[in-house]
Amino acid sequence: MWGRFGSLVPIGAQTTQISQQRGMATLKAISIRLKSVKNIQKITQSMKMVSAAKYNRAERELKQTRPIGAGASQFYEKAEVAAPTDVPQRLYIAMSSDRGLCGAIHTSVARLIRNELLKDDKNIKVVCVGDKSRALLGRTFGQNIIFAANEIGRLPPTFLDASLLADAVIASGYKFGSGEIVYNRFKSVVSYSTQTLPVFSLSTVQSAPKLSIYDSLDDEVIQSYIEFSLASLIYYALKEGACSEQSSRMTAMDNASKNATEVIDKLTLAFNRTRQAVITRELIEIISGASAL
């Protein structure tokens, strides 16, 4: 019994000694940590303000763009153009951007394409718009990427950007039967959904069952029409993507600021407690030192 107690004493003495040293160290460590969390909160708060301003603009512009998207895909719906069975080659255009810190915006686009690639990676080629989708898909499916475009998302997308992208897709020379533009459709500030827009090639449109009801068509007109509607669809998808991204970043940064507040509260409490403990211990040391005299 005594023996056991005896052995406990030095351990107790040791731990108090360690915690004393640690008490001083943690005080410093906590204050450093507190300062860095406060800085992070400042950054997330200002990022939120910036993306809120960008979001307002993006949403205003998106309202102007929705009829274009609806109008451009209308012909394919009305003419009942469908993916051909004899041409298995497909094209996926991933609409992401260069910047992160915006929730699952880029991952959800990449995930949809990755699932398709996992099913069949022979007949699918991908065009990555924005660095993020390239980074997400490039590692595992690098050989499926035709080209990647960056410098997307810093400025609001313009029709010229969309035309250049459409031009690059056509100039890449990839022969596909059908394709899809994968983008995030903006629903509200708190929600978006990952959707696709159809893209078709000339031969696919020519074999559409209801094309015969359309009057006076020649290949040149259809080809020009397809090229222009590809540009319009990309433009629309860029706008939707930009708006979803900004709104998602706004929410993400708001959450980050809230979390930082929580961490700051906890750290302040821990800091004050430790400070008090250190003071009390110093007092005890002084008092016990004085009483020993």
Binding site: F75, D215, L217, V221, Y225
Partner: peptide, 8 residues
């Protein structure tokens, strides 16, 4: 009621 068509 124009006949369906597409044009550039």
């Amino acid at each position: 009621k124009h006949v369906p068509t597409i044009a550039v």
